[in-house]
């Protein structure tokens, strides 16, 4: 399977990464090289095999449903590129 330039643009859009026209051609050949490499998996017989979902066979740990942390809003917004008080500031989303 290989991707065309329309598909490269669609993937870039889904990935929320801006691409220029020059980059699309490059990306197309790089992505196709990787896809050609993984193509060999098509020949593996996986009939009746369960996909791996847990690396170590274990029950997912649960903890008591209690508040264990909080009141650290200053720390949470400290790294925001733009903030006001305890809010993250973004361009207008809803008209």
């Amino acid at each position: 399977m290989s991707v065309d330039t329309t598909t490269v643009r669609r993937i870039a859009h889904l990935s929320r990464i801006a691409v220029t026209d020059d980059e699309v051609a490059h990306l197309q050949s790089e992505l196709n090289a990787i896809l050609a490499f993984v193509e060999q998996l098509r020949g593996v017989d996986v009939e009746g095999v369960e996909p791996m979902t847990s690396v170590m066979p274990m029950q997912l740990k649960k903890r008591a449903d209690q508040v264990t942390d909080g009141f650290i809003a200053d720390e949470i917004v400290a790294n925001a590129p733009r903030r006001e008080d305890h809010f993250f500031v973004v361009p207008k989303v809803v008209e």
Binding site: H13, S15, R16, I17, A18, V19, I76, N79, A80, P81, R82, F88, V90, P91, K92, V93
Partner: peptide, 22 residues
């Protein structure tokens, strides 16, 4: 580009995401 790290401004939030990540 919202909670931490680099932000590159854009005309709307989508363009901000795409430029920041590019």
């Amino acid at each position: 580009g919202v909670r931490y790290g680099l932000r590159v401004p854009g005309k709307d939030v989508r363009e901000m995401y795409e430029r920041t990540r590019a």
